[in-house]
Computed example of a mutant assay.
Amino acid sequence: MQEWIHMLPKAELHMHIEGSLEPELMFQLAERNGIELPYASVAELKAHYDFNNLQEFLDIYYLGCDVLRTEADFYDLAWAYLQRAREDHVVHTEIFFDPQSHTDRGIAFETVINGLYRAFKDGESQLGISFHIIACFLRHLPEQAALDLYPEILKHRDKIIGIGLDSSELGHPPEKYLRVFQQAKQDGFKVVAHAGEEGPAEYVRQAIDLLAVDRIDHGNRCLDDEFLTAQIAQKGLALTVCPLSNLKLKVVKDLALHPIKTMLHKGLLATINSDDPAYFGGYINDNFKQLADAVGLSEDEIFTLVENSFKASFLPDDIKSIHLKALNAFG
């Protein structure tokens, strides 16, 4: 089954490009840009990847962001992810980036988006991987910071399909970002939000009812509310679930306790993704394989999860149909 999982064509819908910064590349970019990291080696850096919660991870995540300075850096970051995606037979990816993590350091928005976009266009032509880019707001910052940045995103709407909401969840409910999400919806962007990872089911409800999200990132805690879970299933809203991230950040105590089967049994459009793979121990196929072993996923359940990844994507329906036909022919 492991080889079958590996070969299945799939889409990835929840992957932070900054979270794919492998330690080796972090050190290379730090040297290239004359930056001294507070760790003497890759091994010493990796020793700090034993996180107790989301915030501990974010502290190192933002440290990694600091080595990204030039358009070439962002290109190299994205290209390294695309190489991994090709190995895992990802044929479509919808990635997040955190512009405020860079603009707040004085890096021009154009430097970030142009480097990323150029790499993904090359990945499309050279590797056959289609893509969408989603710009995420950092929820621990004031909404005004997002409103101030929004015109830059709007200026590059030819490169960016949607906006999202990530970073520290607890204490920062979706309602905090109501105005900027309303504006984005009005301007025709797709909108998504991290909700129900560490935050309660109420945050998932707010993401749906107030932000009118097109997709829910994580969403695990929706299962705490039966009515909400039924509502999500009825609406056909997808959950972009990240198993190894859930384990690494203590959202689940053991991968064997992951609620993916419950999600499927309740009719939720759940998908499998890698979140921040350089920090959480694996890319998309690692997530599929380790989860399948831990909870005993059947071939039918794995196939459904892969099928869901295309159904939940922001691809046009005719392109979705092409991918689903190819998947069914493979399966």
Rank of each mutant, 00 (worst) to 15 (best):
T304N: 06
Q206R: 01
N52C: 11
L315R: 00
Y62I: 08
Q186C: 13
F137I: 00
L264K: 04
G19P: 08
A201M: 00
I319K: 07
S274H: 05
A193T: 15
L127W: 11
V90H: 02
N114K: 12
P38D: 14
D73G: 11
T304M: 08
E3V: 09
A119D: 02
I133Y: 04
E299R: 10
A312F: 07
R69P: 03
I284R: 02
N246T: 05
Y81H: 15
I302P: 04
Q2A: 10
L138E: 06
V252H: 11
S313Y: 07
G199F: 07
D225G: 02
D76P: 01
Q290T: 15
Y150G: 03
G162I: 02
L239G: 03
K266H: 08
A233H: 02
E197N: 05
E152N: 10
A292R: 14
A184G: 09
T111S: 00
D166P: 02
S125E: 10
V192D: 01
D158G: 06
A326V: 09
N53F: 05
D317N: 08
E197P: 10
W4L: 12
S168R: 15
C65W: 13
I163K: 01
E22R: 15
K311V: 01
D98E: 15
P277D: 14
K176L: 05
Q55W: 13
R205W: 05
A193K: 06
L13K: 04
D317I: 10
D224G: 00
L127H: 15
Y150N: 05
I35V: 12
E71K: 04
L264A: 00
F131G: 12
P277R: 12
L149P: 01
G188D: 09
E56Q: 13
H218T: 01
L244G: 01
G219D: 10
A195R: 00
A312G: 01
Q2G: 14
I163E: 00
E3G: 08
D224C: 01
A146W: 15
L228W: 04
V252K: 08
D166A: 10
I113Y: 07
E110W: 06
I208D: 09
Y283G: 12
T229N: 04
F51V: 14
A278G: 11
P277M: 12
Q231E: 14
T93I: 07
I60A: 01
E56V: 03
L269K: 03
V91L: 02
F227V: 14
P243V: 04
L170C: 11
Y283E: 09
E124T: 05
D158S: 15
A207G: 00
A278W: 08
P38G: 10
D187A: 13
N33T: 10
G188Y: 08
